[in-house]
Write a protein that binds this DNA or RNA. Structure first.
Lengths: 148, 148
DNA sequence: TATTGTTATACTCTATAACTATA
DNA sequence: TATAGTTATAGAGTATAACAATA
């Protein structure tokens, strides 16, 4: 493997990092303008799109320890965006369920989030986006596989 | 603009985020194995490749407030990887300069970092990497422009 | 007056460990 | 015994504001 191949990989890493960072700066600011941090948005998005979830599973999906989940869920519950619901069949389990207010909030927020992203990515044609999606998907899956 | 275009952009955002996250999990672990966090690696990399820098400018380049820069530079100085050098022509200014030990450290670390990345990206052919570089570079630059 | 860097302080987020209650 | 969630606690990293030295 040549030195040029190494440099090419480094270059790809740099442009990938920069593109990701540039997008995140915009989306994180958007979340913050609406009183959320990225973790909180991730939780609300999960509950909004996938329905109520046991706290444990939320922690697994967004990679957060149980004590940290309690903290995040507390904050969102205090703001009225979700509520805790006991599981009748297993009384150890608590679901987080998005409230009416939380649903309204996400119905407003999520399409705006999508449009922000669409605008940020507008320099690429639909064909270029398909190409990028294919390459990045292959890359992401491959790296996940390598990690196991 | 159609709903499908919006969904395509969302999809691109998701695969981009995931690929980036997958890479960062590996590189951050690599940094941590060598006693550094990503910010500290970024500072050392800057000094290693671009030479000594006024503290203020380091803060600008890696987006850190002046009080936080003092904290990071303190930590790296205590480990012997850099030292503070007064600027003779403007006595308000302090440079951070990488030491011999820091240089040796980076001469060992950086090629290993590059090889790790190369392996992580090995699922893509050189041609695919060139395509990805071109698209992501265009994307990153365009978003930066949109922010101003 | 403006700028550089330091100090002191506080805050946010996350992890860990001990605990309670269920299973 | 094992699991779900809470509580208490600690730590890392960052930001802010007040400050001293210098321009």
């Amino acid at each position: 493997m040549s030195n040029n191949d190494i440099k090419q990989s480094l270059k790809l890493y740099i442009v990938l990092s920069r593109a990701n960072k540039a997008i995140n700066e915009v989306t994180n600011q958007f979340f913050q303008d609406h009183g959320l941090n990225p973790t909180e948005f991730a939780v609300l998005e999960l509950l909004h799109h996938k329905g109520r979830q046991p706290l444990q599973q939320i922690g697994n999906k967004i990679l957060l320890a149980s004590g940290s989940i309690t903290y995040v869920i507390d904050k969102l519950e205090k703001r009225g965006y979700l509520e805790r619901v006991s599981c009748p069949s297993d009384r150890r389990v608590t679901f987080a369920e998005i409230t009416e207010a939380g649903t309204e909030f996400m119905k407003e927020l999520f399409p705006e989030h999508e449009e922000n992203l669409h605008e940020l990515l507008s320099v690429l044609t639909p064909e270029e986006k398909d190409t990028a999606i294919e390459l990045l998907k292959k890359l992401g899956l491959s790296i996940k596989d390598l990690s196991y």
